[in-house]
Amino acid sequence: MVFIKAVGAAALMMTMSMAILLGSTLAVAMPTSPAIGIVNIGRIRKLVAKYNLSSILVFGDSSADPGNNNHLATTFKGNFPPYGKDFFGGRPTGRFSNGRLPTDFVAEALGYAAVVPAFLDPNVKTESLSRAVSFASAASGYDDLTANLTNVLPVWKQLEYLKHYIIRMRRLMNGETKEMIKNAVFVLSMGANDFLQNYFVEPNRPKQFTVQQYEDYLVGCLIRDVKEMHRIGARRLVVVGVPPLGCMPLVKTAMNSAVCVDKYNIPALSLNIKIKNSLATLAGELGLTAVFADAYGAIVDAVNNPKKYGFVETSKGCCGTGTYEYGDTCKGQSTCKDPSKYVFWDAVHPTEKMYEIIAADLLNTVLTQILA
Rank of each mutant, 00 (worst) to 15 (best):
I273C: 08
D294E: 15
F292C: 10
S334P: 04
A293F: 09
P306C: 04
K252F: 06
A283L: 11
L250A: 15
K263S: 11
Y326A: 14
I275D: 03
G246I: 01
M248A: 15
Y326M: 07
I275M: 15
C319T: 15
S257F: 03
S334A: 10
V300H: 02
K263C: 02
M255C: 15
G246E: 00
E313K: 14
M255L: 08
L288Q: 02
D328T: 02
K307D: 14
S257T: 13
D328K: 06
V303W: 06
L286N: 06
V251H: 12
K307A: 15
V291T: 11
V291L: 09
N304H: 13
C318P: 04
A280T: 12
G310F: 09
A280G: 03
T289S: 12
D294H: 06
T323C: 13
V251N: 14
G327Y: 00
E285Y: 04
T314N: 05
T281Q: 11
Y324S: 09
I299P: 00
S334T: 11
C319F: 10
L286M: 09
G320R: 04
V261D: 07
D294R: 04
K252A: 12
V259F: 00
P306D: 04
A290D: 01
Q333V: 04
A254F: 14
E285D: 13
Y326F: 15
Y309T: 05
D294K: 11
V303G: 01
P306G: 10
G246K: 00
L271H: 00
G284W: 01
K308S: 12
